[in-house]
Design a protein around this nucleic acid. Structure first.
Lengths: 163, 163
DNA sequence: GCAGATACTTTGTGTAGTCAAACTATCTTG
DNA sequence: CAAGATAGTTTGACTACACAAAGTATCTGC
């Protein structure tokens, strides 16, 4: 690719990113409220996001994923375990290692959290359908995270409040 | 608009959002590293983002924007002031009121921060130019935040708060 | 001119999140 | 088996925030 084209591409990318990032920033409050409603700290949410109900994850793997100290991982998992969202099992192969999984209750909270975070901000609906389609199709080509496919957005309804 | 069309639009929006949000989440680490490199906490960055060199902002206005207690705003501004990034002036009209502005050094750090945060993640450049253009054009129609352009909202109105 | 409202700061307390260092239990290797 | 590596936890200390309550200075309405 010619330098000319590359630099134009960089400029387009920069402008696209700036606008997207800007939009994301303006909707941060909505996401904060989601966490508040589910009574989760940002750390809780991240922890929840790294676990699942089927395959246990080792503490070390979690610490590596979160780029934190092993003792911090202990602390993060403890928080969820205390609330009945996660539990530690022992590996049959190596009794030193713990395998952390979500409880059914934890999985339910995880699903609620994802549904709420994946619900598009109302401002997004002010766009024309054509623009949304363009947005979706371009975004589809972005590298995506490790999250499993989402369930229907109707899951957001009727979230019970704890107290 | 027909219900049919509305629901399709919602579905497209949901998918677009999910993908964008997902991408943003996967690039969070890069932004964390930006803050680390500039030796700023998230709170510092937010504070820096709300100030400018020209028009001073009152503590009360900042607390309202940040949705925090007045004493928290004091604490946040203190942090920047201690590092020479911000300074407090007195309003000529009301001696109770402090007007917070950025110092030249603070403005420089603010510019660096924005430049770094607005730099598109490398993964974005893996898209075709056509997709980037589509992304940019669609994103341009999103409501934008106050950052690139000077803030229009005059804050003369006083909001009565209940406590 | 004074009673109350307003703007901000100080002080105290609590939670979230982070690491380092010491410790336990278990596995691996010479 | 003994020595060391590895997985995880505990304990202690520290930072970043957040709010409440009390305190200071100033302004405004009657």
């Amino acid at each position: 690719m010619a330098d000319r084209a590359r630099s134009r591409k960089a400029a387009v990318a920069a402008e696209a990113w700036r606008r997207i990032f800007d939009f994301i920033a303006t909707t941060a409050d909505q996401r904060d409220r989601v966490l508040e409603r589910l009574d989760l700290t940002p750390g809780d949410a991240r922890t929840l996001g790294s676990l699942n109900q089927d395959e246990g994850r080792t503490m070390r793997a979690l610490a590596r994923e979160w780029r934190c100290d092993a003792s911090t991982a202990t602390w993060l998992v403890d928080r969820l375990e205390r609330r009945g969202f996660a539990k530690r099992g022992s590996s049959p192969e190596d009794r030193r290692v713990k395998l952390v999984t979500l409880t059914p209750r934890g999985a339910k909270t995880q699903a609620r959290l994802r549904a709420a975070l994946f619900a598009p901000p109302p401002e997004l609906l002010s766009l024309e359908v054509a623009d949304l389609v363009a947005l979706r199709d371009a975004a589809a080509k972005l590298p995506s995270g490790p999250w499993p496919a989402p369930r229907a957005a109707a899951e957001l309804q009727r979230v019970k409040r704890r107290s």
